[in-house]
Design a protein around this nucleic acid. Structure first.
Lengths: 142, 142
DNA sequence: TTGGGTGCAAACTATTTGCATTCGA
DNA sequence: TCGAATGCAAATAGTTTGCACCCAA
């Protein structure tokens, strides 16, 4: 039942170092889980995953680590649900579907969504990122 | 210093009734504040505004009322900050700038942002809404 | 060694809920 | 009158913080 991780520890450590993150045991553990594949996880899920695997990460460290990874560009924060933050291990430019019924967050594949061009920004500001979220719901089966 | 409300109580009550909302004293009070002009407010701000004006609305009622208004289409919830929900009294189709430094939320005027077309939705789902948020930050004045 | 990292529990904050009281129709 | 709406306070849940201990460099 355990997930096979296509990324080995050495590569993960290298990736953390490149991002300027000291590769501690817990950070590597969390990174292994997250970078195994593109996924959307909450802090709670990361905590559960990490401790199912080998119980050595505290809640505080999970929050610290996710925040740190996000600030270093290793993860992308996705704000779609007021009750929790999602972290997306796919940091490339892309957008999301959010199923408001199931709470599920999905990548929108490819270039199917493109903004024509950015509107004029307010004076003294610069763009930091563009989030496009298409909220979807289950079609009621008539 | 007090804001002049361009909407009178009678009109506000009419608007609530049209939306299927029983116009109670507190709901009218809150509606008057919100519909006076297009704005982005948090529950906390509404509570403060309502009680500065005439102290007769409780915290629970503010949350109940904002949630109700949103579900009836009188307000639009905007999720951009994990720490709180914004309510937008402009319910027409439009998108937002979010200044991550100041926490300020602004409408993007006009048609300057348009999605080419919606991508194919996951099977069994239908679109409920599209949110475009351009996160901006203060340009560091070199 | 030694300063950054971690764990634990307590603190915080936005929001929700239960229940008794009050109000709109 | 009577069910819906409100107020209050307590409960909840996600996240943050303070501080002592530990480990990566």
């Amino acid at each position: 039942m355990s997930t096979v991780l296509p990324t080995n520890r050495v590569d993960t450590i290298e990736r953390l170092k490149s991002a300027g993150v000291t590769p501690t045991q817990q950070r590597v553990e969390i990174a292994q889980l997250l970078f195994a594949r593109h996924q959307h996880v909450s802090a709670e899920q990361v905590l559960a995953m990490a401790n199912a695997h080998s119980s050595v990460v505290s809640k505080a460290t999970v929050y610290n680590t996710l925040g740190l990874f996000a600030s270093k560009g290793l993860l992308r924060e996705v704000i779609v649900d007021p009750t929790k933050v999602f972290y997306d291990s796919n940091t490339s430019e892309h957008h999301h579907f959010y199923n408001v019924d199931s709470g599920e967050l999905m990548d929108i594949q490819g270039e199917s969504v493109q903004l024509a061009d950015l509107p004029e920004l307010p004076a003294g500001t610069q763009a930091e990122g563009v989030d496009v979220i298409i909220r979807i719901k289950q079609t009621p089966n008539s």
